[in-house]
Amino acid sequence: MFTRSRTSFDLVPRRVRVHAVRRLTGSMVRTTFRDPDGADPVAASSLAALRSPGPEDHVKVFLPDPATGELHAPTVAPDGGIQRPTGVVSISRELTVRARRTVDGVAEVDVDWVLHGDEGPASAWASRAAVGDEVVLVGPGASVAVPEGVERLTVVVDETGLPAAARWVEAVGPDVRVTAVVEIGDDVDESFVEAELGHADVEILYRTDGPGQLEEAVRSLGGPDEGELLVALGEAGELVPVRRYLRHEAGARPDQLAISGYWRRGTVNLDHDQPLDPTDPD
């Protein structure tokens, strides 16, 4: 049985600035954040104090008002939650912490974005992000650790789940066999996906080939081994049949599954903490 410990952190708004922007592949960009000039590097609101030990740890990124460019920072409520400012535009999205490090004594955090034109404010901001731009990061509020004793890892993701999948591969280490099934758009380079996933055995699926590919690919792998952990992250509708197959046909134990919908077609800013499939709850 796998056991994943959970650690909670205080929610702290951190105003940060873009230090670097890197186009990863056709529809993905990475922003590297640092504290603004003059910030106290040992304060609780500094990036040095941000903790993200778990592979799926995420931050809520608060963006400037698209119309005015003004950034309205949230505050901490008396109950420890986050209070959005009233009477102004407050836009946020939850994104995985891809990496955290210290360079020459300065804390940095990387966040990867999937671009889809100007259809949404997050994509529009990320596609134009430039050095010096500022946002507010809140979180992670909690971190779920990698369980001990993983003998084999299977990850099933699309572009939105790729940063977490890469962290999973790094976390289990090179001695654990990893199989990765990744669904991508035509503008994502296979070489980038393979590089992100390190020593994993990667199978690439193209979204333009139609729906249902993830389920078919998972079925082709057969049932899980005793010491296997299966992680599936991406579009909720695509993951529902994957989860049903693993739970009800493949014989996977509940502790072997870590499945989360990061987005859902037709839904704005999906809460991925909600049940993936309300008709088949845990």
Rank of each mutant, 00 (worst) to 15 (best):
R4S: 15
S5F: 13
T7K: 14
V12K: 02
R15N: 02
A20I: 09
V21I: 07
R23L: 13
M28T: 12
P41D: 08
A43C: 09
A49G: 04
P53Y: 08
P53H: 11
P55Q: 08
V61D: 05
P64Y: 08
A67G: 05
L71S: 11
L71C: 11
V76Y: 07
A77L: 08
D79G: 07
G80M: 03
G80R: 02
I82E: 04
Q83T: 12
Q83G: 09
R84D: 12
P85K: 13
S92V: 03
E94T: 10
E94S: 11
T96Q: 05
T96L: 07
V97S: 10
R100M: 09
T102H: 03
V106K: 01
E108G: 01
D110C: 02
V114R: 00
D118E: 12
A124D: 06
W125G: 00
R128N: 00
A129S: 09
A130T: 11
G132K: 04
V138P: 03
S143Q: 01
E151R: 15
L153A: 03
V156P: 10
P163S: 14
P163T: 14
A164W: 10
A165N: 09
A165C: 13
V172A: 13
G173C: 12
V182P: 10
E183Y: 12
G185T: 12
V193N: 09
E194M: 06
G198R: 14
H199F: 06
A200M: 09
Y206C: 08
E215M: 05
E216Y: 04
A217F: 07
L221N: 12
D225N: 12
E235Q: 12
A236R: 15
A236G: 14
E238A: 15
E238C: 09
E238I: 03
L239C: 13
P241A: 13
R243M: 15
H248W: 14
P254C: 01
L257D: 07
Y262S: 11
R264P: 05
R264A: 14
G266A: 04
V268C: 03
D271K: 13
H272R: 13
L276G: 07
P281D: 08
